[in-house]
Design a protein around this nucleic acid. Structure first.
Lengths: 86, 86
DNA sequence: AAAGTATTTAGAAATATTTCTAAATAGATA
DNA sequence: TATCTATTTAGAAATATTTCTAAATACTTT
């Protein structure tokens, strides 16, 4: 994990909203996309950024790919910020 | 304050290092710049991003401009992350 | 007032990001 | 097997970011 990658992932409003959606539980890529006025390809791009930042995990079932929050990275970020505060 | 702006400010390694430097206390723009292998103009650019994100405050004294951490925004960020964890 | 020091602003070049359309892949169903 | 559905990948266009050099601003000291 790199803080730069993680903060960059969080800097985009679409990606923050995706994470907020995932607070309620896992969701398929298509279901996530239905909340936005963008193509599936664009949503897929954003999910790949969140995945690289390790902010989400994916699991496959039938034809679908489900995404879910990975909160452990969020904790590392909070620890960094907490240390910054001193 | 906007979370997007703040996370974007934190996504750059130079800016995170500037903030880390400021943990020890206020520092002038030139003093900050001396820690990096970049022109003063570039450091000034990064400081302006941190300022817009409200992550630092500036104060002038004599010929110098001093920068210092603003931790209140850091707290807001932590609150957002904490809420994300649920 | 003139010259010096600290910092920012402007403009340009290189690189990165975000979005789209079209095509590819992978799995499910008829 | 053929086709349909869900999702990703590739490639391109528009925009944003990061860095530099050169010039401008602002304050201090001589």
């Amino acid at each position: 994990m790199s803080f730069g990658q993680t903060f960059k992932a969080l800097s985009d409003p679409v990606r923050r909203e995706i994470l907020t959606l995932l607070k309620t539980g896992r969701m398929s890529a298509g279901e996530i996309g239905s909340h936005f006025d963008m193509t599936g390809a664009t949503i897929s791009y954003h999910l790949s950024i969140l995945k690289k930042a390790d902010l989400v995990h994916e699991s496959k079932y039938k034809n679908f790919i489900y995404y879910e929050l990975n909160t452990s990275v969020v904790e590392e970020l909070m620890a960094w910020l907490s240390d910054l505060k001193g």
